[in-house]
Write a protein that binds this DNA or RNA. Sequence first.
DNA 1: TGCAGTGTTGCTTC
DNA 2: CGAAGCAACACTGC
Length: 298
Amino acid sequence: MPELPEVQTMVDDLRRKIIGRRIIKTWVGAAGLIKNLSASAFQQSVRGRKIRAIHRRGKNIIFYFDNDSAMLIHPKLTGHFLVGRKQDFTPRTGSPDQPYLFQKKTDHYIYLIFYLDKNLAFGLSDLRKFAKVVFYRRQEAVEKALYKELGPDALEVDFAEFSKRLRRYRGRVKSALMNQKIIAGIGNIYADEILYLSKIHPLAATDRLRESQLRTLYRSMRKILTKAVHSRGISVSDFSDTAGQAGLYGERRLVYDREGERCRCGRAFIRRIKIGGRSSYFCPVEQKLTSTRIPTQQ
DNA sequence: TGCAGTGTTGCTTC
DNA sequence: CGAAGCAACACTGC
């Protein structure tokens, strides 16, 4: 799930706990997790490196090391980090290829562990094994790769740039918000939350939104994402922070996964439709579909 | 019991 | 360019 707020929660925790630490050794428990190097080449590349800085860009996490190299991690659907002492990480009973546990809790599936100095360690838990890890010999290379595939970050972009980018998108507003090349960081859950707060239908034609609607959308985006970051994200599936704690946004969510519940407006029940195979939740009264070029049956 | 549904992305096809 | 379908994988819930 991790979208911007969940990834920011991970980065906040990691910064607090492992900046300045040195990687002593690593354990790689899944073939294909490291996208551009063999497991052994990767282990050799990061061994002895000091973690100098950690940044987020959209849903990507970048670790900067002390010799100008860097590591990019994209958590995809179920990736999240856990930080503890070395002895907090133990293998599942049975074969040595099994994912590791964190503090013996079976809801973690750790496929990558970095052992650090000061008896610390951090692991990447990734139940569905979609996560992406890429090593870059030079910092410049990671910046270049990110610049190519990502638009500005949803919490960094100013209104002028935001509206300029949305105006040239000829499609549905929900697809625009979720398109990482337009704006980076928003996924299925927060797109629904933002559109609900904006009172805009997810299927609305992006290039037909009025100036006032774009302003509302921009303000709602900042409001929802900021609130979710302060809530430390939402724990759908097995997401947790680096201590294994769940986020609180789930209790504060406005529409996501609330099909059939009464809308806060009191005049309708939350509906669910499919857009591009993904569930979309909205209020049929507050979020009226005024103009769309895309034919839809519902 | 089995199958639809679950956060993301990338690829192919229309 | 944009949308839809599917694949990558593993588990939950109806």
